[in-house]
């Protein structure tokens, strides 16, 4: 059984991944897939939403004669990431009071 990853959590993960370095679509998907189990196709709507909201911007680089679109976090995106991180800490603490138990219970 796995926990469903909601839209806002996915947005937060994308922003966090991009806060380290600019990434292109495929690599970004791989980075996210390292931690959460999502399909390759789920990320496009997330990226589009984030771009529309001004949290990330794109630029194109040519690579081996074709185009690669890189995603870059904006200042507003960094602020949003900060807010997401605070919210996440709070969320984990709250869920932990109910769900969290001793390690050996598992």
């Amino acid at each position: 059984m796995k926990f469903q990853v909601g839209a806002s959590l996915l947005e937060a993960c994308v922003l966090a991944a991009l806060s380290k370095e600019d990434l292109y679509g495929y690599l970004l998907t791989q980075e996210i897939q390292k931690v959460v189990d999502i399909s390759e196709s789920t990320l496009y709507p997330v990226l589009r939403r984030l771009k529309k909201q001004g949290f990330l911007e794109t630029y194109d680089r040519s690579y081996q004669g074709r185009n690669r679109r890189y995603y870059k976090i904006t200042k507003a995106g960094e602020d949003m990431l900060c807010a997401y991180r605070e919210e996440w800490c709070d969320y984990v603490k709250r869920i932990d009071t109910l769900l969290g138990g001793e390690q050996d219970e598992c």
């Binding site: 589009r48 185009n67 690669r68 679109r69």
Partner: peptide
């Protein structure tokens, strides 16, 4: 075009 470019790129990179 944006959608198609995104998925084409994923195919190419994969």
């Amino acid at each position: 075009d944006d959608v198609l470019a995104y998925y084409r790129e994923i195919f190419e990179d994969a």
